[in-house]
Amino acid sequence: VVEKVLDRRVVKGQVEYLLKWKGFSEEHNTWEPEKNLDCPELISEFMKK
């Protein structure tokens, strides 16, 4: 389960987000493609920053 979106990048035309996973430490954060995500409210919250 995604706890928080930390960053955004574009790699080869694909948007990816750096995710903080609930119950895991920062060392387990991962970059995931936008198309694989199902957390629009967290993405929206990140984009407001």
Rank of each mutant, 00 (worst) to 15 (best):
residue 34 E to M: 07
residue 37 L to S: 03
residue 13 G to W: 03
residue 46 F to E: 03
residue 8 R to N: 04
residue 18 L to H: 08
residue 17 Y to M: 03
residue 35 K to I: 13
residue 24 F to A: 10
residue 18 L to E: 05
residue 41 E to H: 09
residue 41 E to W: 10
residue 39 C to L: 07
residue 34 E to P: 03
residue 11 V to P: 00
residue 17 Y to Q: 01
residue 35 K to M: 15
residue 36 N to M: 10
residue 28 H to L: 09
residue 9 R to G: 00
residue 49 K to F: 15
residue 27 E to G: 12
residue 39 C to G: 03
residue 32 E to L: 14
residue 14 Q to M: 11
residue 23 G to L: 03
residue 21 W to G: 02
residue 15 V to F: 09
residue 32 E to K: 08
residue 10 V to M: 14
residue 16 E to R: 03
residue 1 V to D: 03
residue 42 L to V: 08
residue 1 V to R: 10
residue 40 P to A: 13
residue 6 L to R: 08
residue 23 G to V: 02
residue 27 E to S: 12
residue 11 V to E: 14
residue 9 R to C: 00
residue 33 P to C: 13
residue 8 R to M: 11
residue 17 Y to F: 10
residue 12 K to G: 14
residue 45 E to P: 03
residue 35 K to R: 13
residue 36 N to W: 06
residue 23 G to M: 09
residue 49 K to A: 06
residue 22 K to V: 14
residue 2 V to E: 07
residue 40 P to Q: 11
residue 47 M to Q: 13
residue 41 E to L: 13
residue 6 L to V: 11
residue 48 K to W: 04
residue 30 T to I: 04
residue 18 L to K: 09
residue 29 N to K: 06
residue 29 N to V: 11
residue 47 M to C: 11
residue 44 S to K: 15
residue 26 E to S: 14
residue 44 S to C: 12
residue 10 V to L: 14
residue 45 E to R: 07
residue 20 K to R: 10
residue 2 V to H: 03
residue 38 D to H: 11
residue 10 V to K: 09
residue 21 W to H: 05
residue 30 T to P: 01
residue 47 M to G: 13
residue 32 E to T: 13
residue 40 P to V: 12
residue 4 K to S: 12
residue 49 K to I: 12
residue 39 C to N: 06
residue 31 W to M: 01
residue 14 Q to T: 11
residue 32 E to P: 00
residue 35 K to Q: 12
residue 31 W to A: 01
residue 16 E to P: 00
residue 19 L to S: 06
residue 24 F to C: 05
residue 5 V to I: 14
residue 16 E to M: 14
residue 35 K to Y: 08
residue 31 W to V: 01
residue 41 E to N: 11
residue 16 E to I: 03
residue 3 E to S: 05
residue 29 N to D: 04
residue 10 V to W: 02
residue 28 H to F: 08
residue 7 D to I: 00
residue 3 E to F: 03
residue 31 W to Q: 04
residue 2 V to K: 03
residue 2 V to A: 10
residue 13 G to H: 14
residue 17 Y to P: 00
residue 32 E to C: 15
residue 36 N to G: 11
residue 36 N to A: 13
residue 18 L to C: 09
residue 36 N to I: 04
residue 14 Q to R: 13
residue 10 V to Y: 14
residue 24 F to K: 15
residue 21 W to M: 05
residue 32 E to H: 04
residue 19 L to Q: 01
residue 32 E to N: 09
residue 45 E to S: 14
residue 33 P to L: 14
residue 44 S to P: 05
residue 44 S to N: 13
residue 36 N to R: 10
residue 20 K to C: 05
residue 29 N to H: 06
residue 8 R to G: 03
residue 45 E to D: 05
residue 43 I to T: 07
residue 36 N to Y: 03
residue 36 N to F: 08
residue 31 W to S: 01
residue 10 V to I: 12
residue 35 K to S: 15
residue 15 V to D: 03
residue 18 L to N: 05
residue 12 K to Q: 14
residue 26 E to T: 13
residue 23 G to R: 04
residue 33 P to W: 08
residue 24 F to Q: 15
residue 16 E to F: 10
residue 23 G to I: 02
residue 43 I to W: 04
residue 16 E to S: 05
residue 42 L to Q: 14
residue 29 N to Y: 07
residue 14 Q to H: 11
residue 47 M to N: 12
residue 48 K to V: 09
residue 45 E to C: 15
residue 37 L to G: 05
residue 9 R to K: 07
residue 23 G to A: 07
residue 12 K to Y: 06
residue 39 C to E: 09
residue 29 N to I: 07
residue 26 E to I: 10
residue 22 K to I: 08
residue 2 V to F: 07
residue 32 E to V: 12
residue 33 P to R: 11
residue 33 P to T: 10
residue 32 E to A: 10
residue 21 W to Q: 04
residue 14 Q to E: 15
residue 10 V to Q: 15
residue 31 W to H: 00
residue 31 W to D: 01
residue 8 R to C: 09
residue 34 E to C: 06
residue 18 L to G: 00
residue 8 R to P: 00
residue 38 D to F: 06
residue 2 V to P: 12
residue 29 N to F: 06
residue 4 K to H: 06
residue 43 I to R: 02
residue 33 P to I: 11
residue 27 E to F: 14
residue 24 F to I: 10
residue 30 T to M: 03
residue 13 G to Q: 05
residue 33 P to G: 11
residue 28 H to T: 06
residue 25 S to N: 13
residue 10 V to S: 12
residue 37 L to Y: 04
residue 42 L to S: 05
residue 7 D to N: 10
residue 45 E to W: 03
residue 49 K to L: 10
residue 15 V to R: 04
residue 49 K to D: 11
residue 8 R to D: 05
residue 25 S to M: 08
residue 29 N to Q: 08
residue 45 E to L: 07
residue 31 W to G: 01
residue 36 N to Q: 14
residue 28 H to I: 05
residue 27 E to T: 15
residue 4 K to L: 07
residue 11 V to C: 11
residue 3 E to P: 00
residue 10 V to E: 13
residue 46 F to R: 02
residue 17 Y to R: 00
residue 36 N to E: 14
residue 41 E to F: 12
residue 45 E to G: 08
residue 9 R to P: 00
residue 13 G to A: 04
residue 49 K to W: 15
residue 48 K to S: 13
residue 23 G to S: 08
residue 15 V to A: 10
residue 43 I to D: 01
residue 14 Q to G: 14
residue 28 H to P: 03
residue 49 K to G: 14
residue 8 R to A: 06
residue 49 K to N: 13
residue 10 V to G: 03
residue 5 V to L: 12
residue 10 V to R: 07
residue 7 D to A: 15
residue 37 L to H: 04
residue 8 R to V: 05
residue 5 V to Y: 00
residue 16 E to Y: 15
residue 4 K to G: 05
residue 29 N to A: 14
